[in-house]
């Protein structure tokens, strides 16, 4: 009873709440990091060094007037932010934050579930998340959001191909679609896949920037061109849902990157024996640190780079990343079949 119902339920609650808190503090982190990059201070007023800013933001967004444009498609308009938020949250079910640990005598794996198509699950759920953006743009009945949602759908579909192809390379290496097995395979191989698959890692990084609509690929919400893009007409809590979904997706992507390329909860250099001291630090801390580094790079990139143009983005995706990813996949397969076998 405890193992089948209570523990999963507790885990789901913990993961959901942790995600929501992490997402809101992600916003603060982003504001702070960008501020430091730009020789500013960032939020400083709410709490010491602005640490309570996310709470203030949340309150502000909740009590703001929630406007639905008169000529909007009312149902779809309301549904769109939910559609974009839910997939971003349910993906966390298969992310292994750490190995199995023992809490009060129970062996508790630090993930909600481990299904044998975990990676595909993430990809497919993420692909449903696109609807949130497309429908938001459509339902607003406004020109900028419409343009933005067209951009978004084209962009997400194209980059999904490249990203999925790099994932396939990793699946080939690990021989499994399960997230946990992939980490365990890295443990067995005694190396992070990021080192043996640098090209895949790079493509995954660029592709994930595009998939999460982050700079320099943030065309769907390009403020300077489309005045905020698909969420131009949104306000209040519905806008906040989009906002949270974006950051939740960022965390998902960095978790996936950590799991696939940075050895998940493994310590650095699992092949170097004398670094065994590092094992004293629990696995989930390693996981969080690695994800954090990845997220930090996301923010850093945003603070530094100009924005791509839409056609250039498509060109990069179709003419550079996808061919490279296919090449990488073929090379991996060849090596796997003829070399290692």
């Amino acid at each position: 009873m405890i193992d089948t119902f209570v523990i999963p339920l507790v885990k789901i609650l913990v993961v959901l709440n942790a995600t929501l808190v992490a997402v809101s503090y992600m916003v603060l982190l982003e504001r702070k990091v960008i501020a430091w990059t730009q020789s500013r201070l960032g939020p400083m007023r709410v709490g010491p060094y602005g640490v309570l800013q996310p709470i203030a933001d949340a309150i502000k967004l909740m009590i703001k007037e929630d406007i639905t444009p008169v000529r909007a498609d009312r149902w779809v308009f309301t549904l769109a932010p939910i559609i974009s938020m839910v997939p971003a949250l349910i993906v966390y079910a298969v992310i292994p934050f750490g190995p199995t640990v023992t809490i009060f005598g129970h062996a508790v794996p630090l993930y909600v579930t481990d299904i044998n198509v975990g990676l595909l699950y993430i990809v497919s759920v993420a692909s449903v998340g696109v609807y949130g953006i497309i429908l938001a743009g459509y339902a607003s009945n406004s020109k900028y959001p419409l343009l933005a949602s067209l951009r978004a759908s084209a962009q997400l579909i194209s980059y999904e191909v490249a990203v999925t192809l790099t994932l396939v390379s990793v699946i080939l290496m690990a021989g499994s679609l399960s997230m946990v097995s992939i980490v365990l395979a890295q443990e067995q191989a005694r190396v992070w896949y990021g080192f043996v698959q640098p090209l895949a890692f790079g493509i995954f990084f660029i592709g994930s920037l595009a998939e999460t609509n982050r700079a320099p690929f943030d065309m769907p919400e390009a403020e300077q061109e489309l005045t905020g893009g698909f969420h131009t007409e949104y306000s209040g809590m519905r806008f906040a849902l989009f906002f949270l979904a974006e950051y939740a997706n960022m965390i998902v992507v960095s978790s996936v990157a950590t799991t696939l390329f940075l050895g998940g909860w493994l310590r650095p250099f699992p092949n170097v024996a004398w670094l065994g001291v590092l094992d004293l630090i629990p696995g989930w801390i390693w996981f969080l640190v690695k994800s954090f580094v990845f997220l930090y790079i996301f923010i850093w990139v945003r603070a530094t780079l100009p924005r791509y143009r839409y056609d250039q983005l498509m060109r990069l995706g179709w003419k550079v990343l996808i061919p490279l990813a296919i090449l990488n996949l073929v090379a991996t397969a060849i090596v796997k079949v003829w070399w290692l076998a």
């Binding site: 960008i34 020789s39 320099p216 390009a222 300077q224 603070a303 780079l305 100009p306 924005r307």
Partner: peptide, 16 residues
């Protein structure tokens, strides 16, 4: 100009 093209840091540097 940089901000229009999406590079926002230059904006604050230049204003400094």
């Amino acid at each position: 100009h940089a901000m229009d093209i999406g590079a926002m840091t230059v904006f604050l540097y230049a204003f400094r």
